[in-house]
Design a protein around this nucleic acid. Structure first.
Lengths: 211, 211
DNA sequence: TTTTTTTTGGAATGTATACTCCGAAATTCG
DNA sequence: CGAATTTCGGAGTATACATTCCAAAAAAAA
């Protein structure tokens, strides 16, 4: 994530600094609300109230709700990718893999297992009804999967895994376990599913450990 | 307070056979629409049109939309549990495990990887905003997990797995892989994620195979 | 400073949607 | 059969929600 432009604002070059701040505030407020209560249940009025803006501001910065949704997807993608990249770009050992696991689990515990995955919940709600959102979300997941794959390839190249390990398959299986584990943890309000889902996959990866 | 009805239990009008049919038709129509486009985006009018009923019928059989949602959850739960029970109640071999896998994958292929899991999508949309629905969905997932666990225990008792296999953990990990795999398959419109997620978990279970 | 552009406040509008109401047709029951 | 109950048609209501509009304040540009 570009820290000089954390909300990925590139569309409207005629925004002043103040305008950019307002726009960012809207996106952050919308992202939080949509994460907590879903996209459909988040009204423009909700966002206005949370971001402390009027409706003229809302429609000054975004053409329509759909456009705001796309920005929220982009914002959540950046956050997730950046947070995970810290762990995945340096997967040099099984300890590092477990550190990644701990990072994910700790987030869930901190938020009382509420909310699930910021991208997974957007995916589930938007994939079938919003074509543009679907495309964005699909790209986000490909990017996420790719960063996991690269981490595993790095472990392989470091000699931590033997040649039977297939980083392509393992990355996809890990991401699936992560998504399913987060959903079940959210439903049960219990960290156990995400812990067991990830641990089981890591244990499986361990079977490819070079001795 | 009405002393003939101190607990304020509203008496349900008796349903004739015709009434039951109409009620069922409403639930099925609602379930399909909510599966295709989500709960929030499915209007009562949509359901009325699909079930070919008037609004007086809608509110004759259901007090409010929330009540209909609960019936939809119950309906989808029954369908999923029954369909999977066919495979899980007789898990006597790895072939049977792969038959279950094929059953799940074939459904996705047939529907062009659209829709995801009927319970998973309801879960993601309702868990944070509808307490009663949340409870029902949690029960559904526990029941589903339990039936997977029983299947694995059966394999264990049959002597297919060694004593290192933990059916509790494996069942939860399998369900997580299933849910995550279905979500990714839905997002990518590609059966690959669900295939790899399940195959990887089954391969892991295979490491507990009794020789 | 003057002019132009951007940002903001807030009322107004139109439509979508959950839910109600009344009476009539159909069905069940005694 | 006749009375009671259930089922149904469809117009009507109230409100929530996305979006628009006008004009003024604030900021930037000239």
């Amino acid at each position: 994530m570009d820290m000089n432009n954390p909300l990925n604002i590139t569309k409207k070059p005629k925004l002043t600094k103040k305008g950019q701040e307002t726009r960012s505030r809207i996106i952050v407020a919308a992202a939080e609300l949509m994460y907590e209560q879903g996209v459909a249940r988040t009204t423009i009025e909700d966002v206005q109230h949370k971001a402390k803006i009027s409706s003229s501001q809302m429609y000054h910065y975004f053409k329509e709700k759909k456009e705001l949704i796309l920005e929220v997807i982009s914002y959540q993608t950046s956050k997730v990718i950046e947070n995970h990249r810290r762990y995945l770009s340096d997967l040099d050992s099984f300890e590092a893999l477990y550190a990644w696991r701990d990072f994910i689990v700790d987030i869930q515990i901190k938020r009382n297992c509420e909310g699930g995955c910021p991208l997974g919940s957007l995916a589930s709600e938007l994939v079938e009804t919003n074509t543009e959102a679907h495309q964005e979300i699909m790209s986000s997941f490909f990017e996420w999967e790719d960063s996991i794959r690269k981490g595993l390839r790095y472990m392989l190249n470091r000699g931590e895994l033997n040649s039977n390990a297939d980083p392509d398959k393992l990355a996809l299986a890990l991401l699936a376990a992560l998504q399913g584990g987060l959903l079940l943890t959210q439903v049960r309000r219990d960290p156990k599913p995400i812990i067991i889902a990830l641990d089981t996959m890591i244990e499986h990866i361990n079977s490819f450990k070079k001795i």
